[in-house]
Simulated assay, not measured.
Amino acid sequence: MLVSNSDRPARLHYMANGFRVLTPGDHVVCAVSGARIPIDSLRYWSVDRQHAYASAHLASEALRPQ
């Protein structure tokens, strides 16, 4: 049986210059907004927090010191 990765969240390990797929899927969820981010559109993440972000603005908001 062939299992499709569509409509399934992926689990990724975020690194400084990319990410490694731990569990295949077609999207990840933004840590701030909860928006679905297609894997091929993912551009912003935190290596330290291991979170994905939907935009540069959301990433900077999340990473701003409190």
Results as ranks from 00 to 15, higher is better:
residue 26 D to T: 10
residue 52 A to H: 10
residue 48 D to E: 06
residue 39 I to Q: 06
residue 60 S to L: 00
residue 18 G to V: 03
residue 51 H to C: 11
residue 24 P to Q: 09
residue 22 L to E: 04
residue 45 W to D: 02
residue 13 H to R: 13
residue 46 S to D: 06
residue 33 S to I: 12
residue 23 T to C: 13
residue 42 L to P: 11
residue 21 V to A: 05
residue 43 R to Y: 10
residue 42 L to D: 13
residue 59 A to P: 15
residue 29 V to M: 07
residue 55 S to G: 07
residue 60 S to F: 07
residue 32 V to M: 11
residue 61 E to N: 04
residue 19 F to K: 03
residue 19 F to D: 00
residue 43 R to H: 10
residue 17 N to T: 12
residue 16 A to H: 09
residue 42 L to N: 14
residue 32 V to G: 07
residue 33 S to C: 14
residue 58 L to H: 15
residue 39 I to G: 03
residue 29 V to K: 00
residue 35 A to P: 13
residue 14 Y to Q: 03
residue 33 S to A: 02
residue 47 V to M: 08
residue 34 G to Q: 02
residue 27 H to C: 07
residue 27 H to Y: 10
residue 42 L to W: 12
residue 38 P to K: 06
residue 26 D to W: 03
residue 19 F to A: 01
residue 15 M to I: 04
residue 33 S to D: 06
residue 53 Y to H: 00
residue 34 G to F: 10
residue 19 F to C: 01
residue 50 Q to I: 13
residue 25 G to I: 08
residue 60 S to W: 11
residue 21 V to D: 08
residue 38 P to G: 07
residue 26 D to Q: 05
residue 24 P to A: 05
residue 31 A to I: 12
residue 28 V to A: 01
residue 34 G to I: 11
residue 57 H to Y: 08
residue 21 V to C: 01
residue 48 D to P: 15
residue 46 S to G: 01
residue 48 D to T: 12
residue 18 G to P: 06
residue 57 H to M: 04
residue 18 G to Q: 14
residue 52 A to Q: 15
residue 50 Q to N: 10
residue 21 V to I: 09
residue 50 Q to Y: 12
residue 37 I to K: 02
residue 50 Q to M: 15
residue 57 H to R: 14
residue 41 S to C: 09
residue 45 W to G: 05
residue 40 D to S: 15
residue 13 H to P: 07
residue 51 H to I: 08
residue 34 G to V: 06
residue 61 E to I: 09
residue 34 G to M: 11
residue 51 H to P: 12
residue 14 Y to C: 02
residue 16 A to Q: 00
residue 48 D to I: 09
residue 28 V to M: 00
residue 19 F to P: 02
residue 12 L to M: 05
residue 52 A to L: 12
residue 45 W to F: 07
residue 42 L to K: 13
residue 12 L to N: 00
residue 42 L to G: 11
residue 39 I to K: 08
residue 12 L to W: 05
residue 24 P to E: 07
residue 35 A to M: 04
residue 26 D to K: 03
residue 19 F to S: 03
residue 36 R to Y: 01
residue 45 W to R: 01
residue 15 M to T: 15
residue 27 H to V: 14
residue 48 D to Y: 02
residue 33 S to W: 01
residue 24 P to C: 07
residue 52 A to Y: 10
residue 43 R to Q: 15
residue 26 D to C: 04
residue 23 T to H: 13
residue 50 Q to P: 05
residue 23 T to V: 13
residue 24 P to S: 10
residue 52 A to D: 15
residue 25 G to Y: 09
residue 35 A to Q: 14
residue 56 A to V: 04
residue 59 A to K: 01
residue 17 N to W: 07
residue 35 A to R: 10
residue 18 G to I: 04
